[in-house]
Design a protein around this nucleic acid. Structure first.
Lengths: 350, 350
DNA sequence: AGCCGTTTGTCAACCGGTTGCCAAAAGTTG
DNA sequence: CAACTTTTGGCAACCGGTTGACAAACGGCT
């Protein structure tokens, strides 16, 4: 488990000063109370309940707090309130660059609201995801699950404890942030059809991945509509290595264009195919999903369907904060847009 | 310790929109005390001070804790002790894949000791790194700084508060985990000399980067020893984009082989050079550092000097934990080994 | 049994905030 | 100016653990 802390605190990098008080311990609201000549509870209110005390006392207390360089003790605050100003984010695989943007987006949104992000990974394991989530439950105010491998009931159980938002998944009763993959897939299929492809294939990701199934359905539907063939030819771990392993099945399928569950797999597949002498895109076109870091390093650079991951992260965090603030959780927002990023791994059928 | 599969009441009040309901309060040591017929403080000791209570009572208490499915309230514990069982890790840029392994290594080491990792990023800014670190100080037991941009005195100041370990940097008086770059650089220079190169160049990273300076020194020393020319020709942000910007300077230098501060820069440089029609490695050989994810996606695949980042992360965490446990393990361990990874971006001089 | 040194468990005082309840102070109104 | 309403600040009781001091219980020994 790891956390991304934000840094709204504009405390001066005070070189020295440390503790104006003799003792080394940090100043408390009692110190402030004494200095301002009021009761500790008044200090507490001044600092956390805006408007509860008079402007005059407020100023008095804020000044005292400033000169003492006071910072709340988050543990002391969390003990009675249960609130930690922290939101957890669990990703299925931290080495998947696709999560960069999710993390960045959530982090930025958190920082803006004076919240801290706690990051953890589940190593593509549903069991680990569950234990991690339950461990987190004790120390965070809400949880974001990015591409969860958990089953719906488990997610709902978590949501009963604390606000939960899922990314790349649709779970009824839980904030679900999903990209409108139909848009990107539609664009891609149209493009491939134009290039003369008639037989498309899909390489699936993990079987527990809701998004993998969703992508396949979208592709299938679109192909049916366009009168193209579409088959799912393989599945595997959503990694470069996983993609490599599907090469044989893909070749055997005879398809001239193949969609992969994500860019990582697409890259692995392309590498393996090229190793076997298959020219991309002349012999076969390859498409990924996500547009991750490095997807343009390959030769040819990978064509892919871009998802607004950063926005997804920010949106997930915003939903949780809204829940926390008691604001009535609004309905499902409209899905985020996706778009086709055309590079060199797709081309005219030979 | 104990895995906690706690699904409790499965009575679903139908599809209520994410009620942040607190749930029935978690069991406390008071509940355990009552169940076991002892005093709460005895429970506390049984659970945290091994050997302080008799084996009989110990068992009694552990059983009660197990049946109640008890978990300590970390806030309640942290309040009087100040210990949070959390270690912070600050990386300079979370989108740099080089940190994947650092994070993974530290995370694994932490999990093994029942600690939690808190991750933060400083966005390559020394100021932000400092505020982030100071903010973290309040909630972690120790801090790991990966490739810090901070100045030594600032790092030492942090180390005075809580245990600190730095990765990719040498700071006297602070746990410093550095790779033995001389080994990898030596290998690389020997290889290039063999290939006929006589004029090498170095593209530096951020000026505040200790590691960048160190790499340059190592290269310079090695070249002097081998009778080769070596010049630092440019510097820039340690990113793909930063690497691109150095292309002109690199070309102008006339060097036939260039080391880049890291793989990201090497990739950017190579892309820009190729765009200008320079053939790699025929016209110019390129070497990176770190062996990051994606460095083998390029054409030609990047030759690089591999650092044991994962081990570094684990080692840093171990040092901090040792400090925390009071074991004054000061001794600077021997540096971690590096090695040359030869791929396609280096070759015989034309 | 009497004495003495260990264990082992209990009491109570924190750690540093939050918050319900109440009374004093301030502000309004007739 | 009295009666009444609204603010504002203080008191004290938590939140759930940890820990020093101390006494009761225990065990060994003469």
């Amino acid at each position: 488990m790891a956390a991304v802390t934000n840094l709204e605190d504009s405390n001066s990098p005070d070189t020295v000063a440390a503790a104006p008080r003799a003792g080394k311990s940090a100043p408390t609201i009692y110190d402030i109370a004494e200095m301002a000549g009021v009761n500790p509870s008044t200090v507490s209110r001044a600092l956390s309940k805006p408007g509860r005390v008079s402007a005059k006392t407020q100023k008095l207390i804020e000044d005292a707090a400033a000169t003492l360089n006071y910072r709340v003790n988050v543990f002391a605050r969390a003990l009675p309130t249960g609130r930690t100003h922290t939101v957890g984010l669990i990703v299925s695989d931290i080495t998947n660059p696709a999560y960069f943007d999710v993390i960045r987006g959530a982090e930025a949104a958190a920082a803006g609201e004076d919240y801290t992000l706690m990051l953890a990974e589940s190593a593509e394991s549903a069991a680990q995801e569950l234990t991690t989530a339950q461990r987190m439950l004790a120390t965070v105010d809400g949880i974001i699950l990015a591409s969860p491998r958990l089953a719906d009931p488990e997610i709902l159980a978590l949501a009963k404890e604390k606000p939960v938002a899922v990314i790349n998944r649709q779970v009824d009763g839980v904030h679900s942030i999903v990209a409108d993959i139909d848009a990107g897939v539609g664009e891609a299929v149209r493009h491939l059809a134009l290039m003369g492809h008639t037989s498309l294939a899909y390489v699936a990701g993990p079987e527990k991945s809701w998004m993998s199934a969703r992508r396949w359905e979208s592709l299938k539907a679109r192909c049916a509509w366009s009168g193209l063939d579409a088959v799912q030819v393989a599945a595997g771990a959503p990694t470069v290595e996983g993609g490599r392993r599907t090469a044989a099945a893909v070749r055997a399928s005879g398809a001239t264009a193949v969609f992969c569950y994500n860019d990582l797999m697409a890259i692995g597949l392309m590498q393996e195919l090229q190793l076997a002498g298959v020219v991309v895109p002349d012999k076969i076109s390859i498409l990924g999903f996500d547009n991750i870091f490095g997807s343009d390093f390959t030769t040819p650079p990978l064509s892919t369907i871009r998802s607004p991951l950063r926005e997804a992260g920010a949106e997930a965090l915003a939903r949780i904060l809204a829940d926390l603030k008691g604001a009535g959780s609004d309905g499902a927002a409209e899905p985020l847009p996706t778009e086709l990023v055309l590079r060199g791994s797709t081309g005219r059928v030979s």
